[in-house]
Design a binder for these strands. Structure first.
Lengths: 336, 336
DNA sequence: GGAATTTTCGGAAACGTTTTCGGTATTTGT
DNA sequence: ACAAATACCGAAAACGTTTCCGAAAATTCC
């Protein structure tokens, strides 16, 4: 079932059918109706390959994610898929490991799949202009860092939260509850990732409240996963350093920390308070319910693809959206 | 950069370049090397649209998932993506809601994206032959049910666990610990889904051990999500029915149940034992650590795409793989 | 009513591949 | 050394679209 068959069945030319299908104005209403009718009846679907070939472009949007499998990104991915679909594009997904280079991965994907645009979910962008030049399509970065300023505002779009401020607020919350010996559970505080931004927020909050930063209280797990967060917390406990609260960079890490504490006989929040960041669904079902800074995941995902689509339609310049996080009180913080 | 450019640069014809690229035998070693060299230097990538057009087929594998966002399927998806990629195919993902029809979704996807094959992740297959005839490419069902036998063994491939036996084993474990008033937390026991299979395993285990099935102990939440599992557990508690253990159909439901119990002042496992199914990573970090029947997720995912690829290469008939589940002891069961 | 537009449509080229068919070279067999 | 087989390669058609160009038909304008 090709466009020729439809043309024949309608007694018109292929070009006319094509015009109808592409909603071009120069076709009479009568013909349009008839063609549409025949198309419907034969339920004809245009051949994407042929179309892409002649247009020399596809409807593919690349999504490169670092760390699928984490609830946060898997939630994000869920709405991203939906939105991309709704916008009439195809999603081609590439997940990369923690050691991979997102820009390079994006560039390869772009060539392989003839992408129209790219969406980076998570990641660290300390790239040189030369590296960034590898990607030749519009792209938006979601939940990203740009610490070195290697990304030029006018070259790309973004949607994110203010990681520094969010961490600041989380730690301040702990301080307001009377805590002063607050540990930070972070994947790393010098990898130029989001982890570092949040770590800085932690430090800033302490300083602003006249609390000395104790390096022994900053534990670097080496990754966002539960296993390493668990081990890092154990290491902290074993070190003998005393603390009354933990600021965890993500909810999953917070949950792993709670487990580590419990395994060492410490209860949350009686013996130790804890706060996370993300607001994943699971955090509502932990024991105790996790107090956390929730990110508007759905909105972030939605805005991301909307912006990308806008960019592709050449409507307006790249936008940079900063969304608010909100504190959701659970039972994991105790007033001292 | 097209195949013509490469041909020109090599002083050979397009056909020859094409042959080299497709690893056909009838090309001399000298020419092959030269072409490959030029291709490498220009880092030329063939135009997929043109190729797909003339071959009138793509390298797309469709994956339709019911219920992304759940840790189990998101884990599965992770390796599925990787494997499909490694096999040189593209994954096109379609996630469907709980009310959607997977076969129809697959059939639509198949036409839209010119799929070579389909992979169904999760789902209920009580379809008529006519409905199944809609899908015209090889497909494999992973983690599925086929209660009505509408799928003919020779028409498709599958990989799954023995849901009945797994549930049976889980419940038996509770019984062996002295429990006799065991509640079942299930999405539904009559929807022809995996939930129903596991529910039947529960019933069978009780009967085989001489325990009367009490309908009041079977709570149907209406879905696999935490929220409904939580509410269902609350309803069970409110009903006043006494029980000493809960068999949850999935780990996330079990975790939600633990939360519900805790919120009503009941501790696990002191006041109530609980066992789940899935073995998601999170279950290792719940309080207490969840005792659960773990599914070999990675293996399931890997086998699924391997089988699909085999099918596409017409190597051997559709296979049906049944994988083993193993009990992982946590601390959520108490000996009575 | 005739010229000038405008609307509507068909013909044909083009997109970048794969593949069939046939034709030279080259090798093999005797 | 000559025929036959084989290895290697090029020309060209085909895949199903879109789009440019021009032509016919319908409409508008004076």
């Amino acid at each position: 079932m090709t466009i020729k068959d439809i043309a024949k069945a309608c007694g018109v030319s292929v070009s006319t059918v094509s015009r109808v299908l592409n909603e071009r104005p120069d076709v009479s209403e009568a013909v349009r109706r008839q063609v549409l009718d025949v198309v419907e009846r034969h339920n004809y679907i245009p051949n994407t390959s042929a179309r892409d070939l002649v247009r020399s472009q596809s409807d593919n949007l690349g999504v490169v994610v670092r760390g699928t499998g984490t609830p946060f990104f898997s939630d994000m991915l869920k709405t991203v898929t939906k939105e991309i679909d709704a916008a009439g594009y195809n999603m081609v997904l590439r997940q990369i490991g923690s050691d991979d280079d997102e820009v390079k991965a994006g560039a390869i994907l772009e060539r392989e799949k003839k992408l129209r645009g790219l969406l980076f979910l998570g990641g660290r962008y300390d790239y040189t202009p030369a590296e960034l030049a590898l990607v030749g399509v519009p792209y938006v970065c979601c939940s990203y860092t740009n610490q070195f300023g290697s990304l030029k505002k006018e070259d790309f779009a973004s949607v994110s939260i203010d990681d520094h401020a969010t961490a600041y607020r989380a730690v301040t919350t702990l301080i307001e509850h009377g805590h002063r010996r607050i540990a930070a559970l972070v994947p790393s505080c010098s990898d130029h990732s989001i982890s570092q931004l949040r770590c800085n927020g932690y430090i800033q909050a302490l300083e602003d409240h006249g609390i000395a930063v104790d390096d022994a209280l900053i534990v670097e797990s080496g990754g966002f996963d539960m296993e390493r967060a668990y081990k890092a917390t154990c290491a902290l406990l074993d070190s003998g350093t005393d603390f009354t609260a933990i600021f965890a960079v993500s909810d999953v890490m917070a949950i792993a920390a709670i487990k580590a504490l419990a395994d060492r006989g410490r209860c949350v929040p009686e013996d130790c308070s804890i706060i996370g960041i993300d607001g994943i669904e699971l955090s509502k079902y932990s024991l105790p319910t996790l107090t956390t800074m929730v990110q508007p995941v759905e909105q972030m995902a939605r805005e991301s693809v909307h912006i990308l689509v806008e960019l592709l339609r050449r409507e307006g310049a790249p936008r940079h959206i900063l969304l608010d996080t909100t504190l959701r009180e659970g039972g994991s913080i105790r007033q001292l």
